[in-house]
Design a protein around this nucleic acid. Structure first.
Lengths: 135, 135
DNA sequence: TACATAGTGTTATATTATAACAACTAAAAA
DNA sequence: TTTTTAGTTGTTATAATATAACACTATGTA
């Protein structure tokens, strides 16, 4: 019920591109997506970017802004791309979507000095993942 | 004393570019910076990007990742670009650096499910600024 | 059917960013 | 003072990321 936004009917291109991103263990860049779907008939950057835009809009994927890369949403609590948080390992570049009720609550209610509240946010944490910490 | 990072001696190019960004009321993009400093002898993108990289590194400016633009640091509490937060108006694109002790404390101490803490973060809030709210 | 809305395919181009290399400069170590 | 070193500079070329514009097609709905 709260997952309405997951139930869009994807078009052919959107589905091809979503499936690729969803299967990937790390974020994918637009042109790497392009190379990977050319055998499926998607030939031009714009076809990729249009699908990406739509998928971001409906919350099926997120853009990792600091990396210009895209990752599938694995967090049912991020409301249609409006509130996202990620951890990024600075060595292996592993990206994980953070799903913390406390964090989302804190940020959703955050007010600045003027008392402004915001409708949307994106947070990126940087550091070392567990594996890289041990090396 | 806590401002050590503000006291780097900037080189000529770094100074020219920092001054431009610092005087600007909104974030500036790399190529718009380039056009604005060509009369001062900075001719190539790389000269701009190198200065920007250095200025980001020493915390005199920040990159607004979602906009690919650069803004001067006006927040003595953001420790050398390691912990940054901004509000971005989706209509007029005004960007303000948020300086909230509560927020920085909360995020600096945030631990994910595995208990990982992170050394760095960047947070971007989106919404309407006061002026645009009233329109 | 016919209408509106969204998506497609295509070419061209704009925007953002880095590689590689030779030369220069300032600061400090010898 | 000379030498070394690390950092910066200037330059050309190119890579990587993203959008404009336009004609056409599919799909749902009235």
């Amino acid at each position: 019920m709260n997952k309405m936004h997951k139930e869009h009917n994807l078009t052919k291109n959107q589905k091809i591109i979503f499936d690729l991103i969803d299967k990937s263990s790390q974020p994918l860049k637009a042109y790497s997506i392009l190379y990977n779907v050319q055998k499926k008939g998607i030939k031009a950057p714009l076809q990729v970017y249009r699908a990406l835009d739509k998928l971001v809009e409906i919350g099926k994927i997120h853009k990792i802004e600091s990396r210009n890369a895209f990752i599938a949403c694995h967090n049912s609590s991020c409301q249609v791309a409006k509130a996202t948080a990620f951890s990024i390992c600075e060595i292996c570049e592993k990206v994980t979507e953070i799903s913390s009720a406390g964090l989302s609550k804190y940020l959703a209610n955050f007010k600045d000095k003027d008392g402004m509240k915001y409708s949307k946010y994106n947070l990126e944490f940087f550091g070392l993942c567990k594996k890289c910490t041990l090396k």
